[in-house]
Amino acid sequence: MQGVVKVNSALNMRSGPGSNYGVIGTLRNNDKVEIIKEVDGWYEIRFNGKVGSASKSYITIVN
């Protein structure tokens, strides 16, 4: 499943599904990500070869 980031500035990509996990990357508006699965309001995603988590509130699913 594919998604597109929708933010005003930037979205942190984290090492796990929650804001208490470390930041491993930064996503910008309109970045395209691969959604692997949903976990507690977060998506596990793949972006630029990295796997991490980002809040699903800022990612829109595209077909």
Rank of each mutant, 00 (worst) to 15 (best):
M1D: 06
M1N: 09
M1I: 13
Q2R: 12
G3R: 03
G3H: 02
V4R: 09
V4A: 04
V4C: 13
V4P: 02
V5F: 01
V5E: 02
V5P: 02
K6T: 12
K6C: 14
K6N: 11
V7N: 07
V7P: 02
V7Y: 07
V7H: 10
N8L: 12
N8Y: 10
N8T: 13
N8W: 10
S9L: 11
S9V: 13
S9E: 12
S9Q: 12
S9N: 12
A10D: 10
A10L: 14
L11Y: 05
L11S: 04
L11F: 05
N12L: 14
N12Y: 14
N12R: 13
N12G: 11
N12S: 12
M13G: 01
R14Q: 04
R14T: 06
R14D: 01
S15G: 07
S15P: 02
G16C: 07
G16V: 02
P17I: 03
P17C: 08
P17R: 04
G18H: 04
S19Y: 15
N20W: 14
N20L: 07
N20E: 13
Y21H: 08
Y21N: 04
Y21F: 12
Y21C: 09
Y21Q: 03
V23E: 04
V23S: 06
V23Y: 05
I24G: 02
I24F: 00
I24H: 01
I24Q: 02
T26K: 12
T26H: 10
T26F: 10
T26I: 14
T26G: 02
L27E: 00
R28D: 06
R28Y: 13
R28I: 09
R28K: 13
R28G: 07
R28E: 09
N29H: 09
N29K: 09
N29Y: 09
N29V: 07
N30I: 03
N30F: 08
N30V: 02
N30G: 15
N30E: 09
D31T: 08
D31Q: 08
D31H: 04
D31M: 06
D31N: 05
K32A: 10
K32T: 12
K32W: 12
K32C: 13
K32E: 10
V33W: 03
V33M: 04
V33K: 00
V33Y: 04
E34R: 06
E34A: 08
E34F: 12
I35K: 00
I36G: 02
I36D: 02
I36V: 09
I36E: 02
K37M: 09
K37Q: 11
K37N: 12
K37P: 01
K37E: 07
E38W: 06
E38R: 04
V39F: 11
V39K: 08
D40Q: 09
D40I: 05
D40E: 11
D40C: 11
G41D: 10
G41H: 06
G41V: 05
G41W: 05
G41K: 05
G41Q: 07
W42H: 02
W42L: 00
W42G: 02
W42I: 00
Y43R: 01
Y43Q: 00
Y43F: 10
Y43C: 04
E44V: 15
E44C: 15
E44H: 08
E44A: 06
I45R: 00
R46D: 04
R46G: 03
F47Y: 10
F47V: 09
F47A: 07
F47K: 03
N48Y: 07
N48D: 11
G49H: 06
G49S: 06
K50S: 09
K50D: 06
V51G: 04
V51K: 09
V51Q: 10
V51A: 07
V51P: 05
G52E: 02
G52L: 04
S53K: 04
S53Y: 15
A54F: 05
A54S: 04
S55V: 12
S55L: 15
S55D: 15
S55Q: 15
K56G: 06
K56R: 08
K56S: 11
S57Y: 14
Y58Q: 09
Y58T: 06
Y58P: 02
Y58E: 09
I59K: 00
I59M: 01
I59D: 01
I59W: 01
T60K: 14
T60M: 13
T60V: 14
I61H: 04
I61Y: 04
I61G: 03
I61P: 09
I61E: 04
I61N: 03
V62H: 08
V62T: 11
V62A: 09
V62C: 13
V62G: 07
N63Q: 13
N63H: 13
N63K: 12
N63D: 13
